[in-house]
Design a protein around this nucleic acid. Structure first.
Length: 420
RNA sequence: GUGACUGUAGCUCAGUUGGUUAGAGCGCCAGGCUGUGGCCCUGGAGGUCGUGGGUUCGACUCCCAUCAGUCACCCCA
């Protein structure tokens, strides 16, 4: 149970405490590194947008229909907390003139919060954070393959081994209606076998019937999207497969894969992981060739993905990967005199070292215990009558006297800063 | 939004058919070691028993509601 606090954290939100933030930092550091290597530049956008923008992106998706946080500000503006990143990022790319300055536009966002009013459970929150990438203005399958390869390589680098890339094509405006009708006909013939939800979805969005878990067998026998693709879409999909193979990526064709947002065209993909409770999607995305124009921009194609960082960390945990970036304290200054310890620690800090001291004025024993807990490599013990301090190596349990003015150098020699 | 299960110290959990001052282990603090940490020993701090009602002479224990967590559905990252 949580400790008694006057007001707890809102439902479906999480605090990241120092014990866990190292894992976040590690995931974020590697994400930055990979996005940079793949040629994506970082973009940051506001937490809230005009409700109109958010809702334009997916009128018939559940997320937008009934899960957004909508509110009016004090000036009467209708605003929404973003439920996903793509709409805002496309908006920002248009507004910032990136699209006008030359194509393709390749941007990534990191630890971007997304808000959905959902019932929380393992791997599902009301505020979660995503790492995502978007490529604007690249029509060919190479852009899709680049995104899949980035996400796949990133997951491998960060330590996920049990994720599989599922790939499908849901066609374009030309060919998808034919597929939709085929599905409608197929499921219509099996109306009696459908669950209540599926009967409702039959009219609105027959593609979603493939998701139904009540009757997998029915979905497996259903018409396949790839069999209804027009020539262009079929060529796109085939080429994507060859590109992924050439890149040495493990992927599988998943005829049942459709994604939650309406705006996808042609390619959809998702990295699936078994350790996420009822959830299975670690991250995914696809192509959205119509969206930029729908948001008022030029008629250019685009593609992207989003990865849930909470789910990533959950999956890493399931795979036994619990390590994170953990800057250890290099040296703790101990002594009876807090003022002296503070002065010494400050001097060490200004010389570029990670230094700490115990501000509580506790016994030396307690200070050493504290240093031990912090993982300090050294403890500098003040209090010697002369100018010397005792420099103790905590791991070796050995110590030697050092002149005060030589302390920084002595520590720096044995414990260089990371990356220095 | 629907259904099920759960809710006792910072953490993991005991708490006997409702009975008076609610316990343990770990963690934390102090001492044993007259400045020196991970082991051991001793002591200490820390709990409105999620919250609010109700039943009862009496509730951590029974009932209802509510909040929160977990799981499944829905959906998704």
């Amino acid at each position: 149970m949580a400790a008694a606090v006057m007001v707890g954290r809102p439902r479906g939100t999480e605090d990241v405490l120092p014990a866990q933030s190292g894992r976040w930092q590690r995931a974020e550091r590697i994400a930055r590194e990979f996005a940079g290597r793949w040629g994506f530049g970082e973009i940051r956008t506001p937490t809230f947008e005009h409700t109109e923008l958010i809702h334009r992106v997916g009128e018939s998706t559940d997320v937008v229909q009934k899960e957004t946080y909508d509110f009016a500000d004090r000036g009467g503006r209708q605003l929404s907390l973003r439920p996903e990143g793509t709409a805002a990022v496309v908006r920002a790319c248009l507004q910032g003139g990136l699209v006008a300055q030359g194509l393709p536009v390749k941007v990534y966002y990191l630890s971007m919060s997304a808000f959905r009013y959902e019932r929380p459970e393992a791997g599902r929150l009301r505020e979660h954070h995503q790492f995502g990438c978007e490529t604007l203005g690249a029509p060919g399958p190479a852009a899709d393959a680049e995104l899949v390869s980035l996400l796949g390589d990133y997951l491998a680098a960060v330590g996920i081994h049990a994720a599989v890339a599922h790939v499908n094509s849901i066609g374009c405006q030309e060919c998808r209606p034919r597929y939709r009708e085929a599905l409608r006909a197929y499921y219509g013939a099996h109306l009696a076998e459908l669950c209540a939800d599926c009967r409702r979805r039959l009219d609105q969005n027959p593609l979603r019937l493939l998701d139904c878990r009540v009757d997998r067998a029915l979905a497996l026998q259903a018409p396949r999207a790839v069999d209804f693709l027009c020539a262009d879409c079929a060529a796109h999909h085939a080429s994507l497969g060859r590109l992924l193979d050439a890149a040495g990526l493990a992927w599988e064709q998943d005829h049942l894969l459709v994604r939650g947002f309406d705006y996808y065209t042609r390619t959809v993909f998702e990295f699936v992981h078994g350790g996420l409770g009822a959830q299975s999607g670690l991250g995914g995305g696809g192509r959205y060739d119509r969206l930029v124009a729908e948001l008022g921009g030029p008629d250019i194609p685009a593609a992207g993905f989003g990865l849930g960082l909470e789910r990533l960390l959950l999956a890493l945990e399931k795979e036994g990967q619990t390590g994170g970036d953990a800057p250890a304290c290099s040296v703790l200054v101990a002594g009876d005199d807090v003022e002296q310890a503070f002065a010494m620690a400050t001097a060490l800090r200004r010389s570029g070292l990670q230094a700490d001291f115990d501000p509580l004025g506790r016994s030396l024993k307690a200070q050493l215990r504290h240093a031990s807990r912090l993982g300090a490599r050294f403890v500098a013990i003040l209090g010697a009558p002369d100018e010397a301090v005792v420099l103790r190596d905590m791991a070796l349990r050995q110590q030697r006297p050092v002149q005060r003015d030589g302390l920084a150098a002595a520590v720096a020699e044995a414990a260089p800063l990371d990356g220095a």
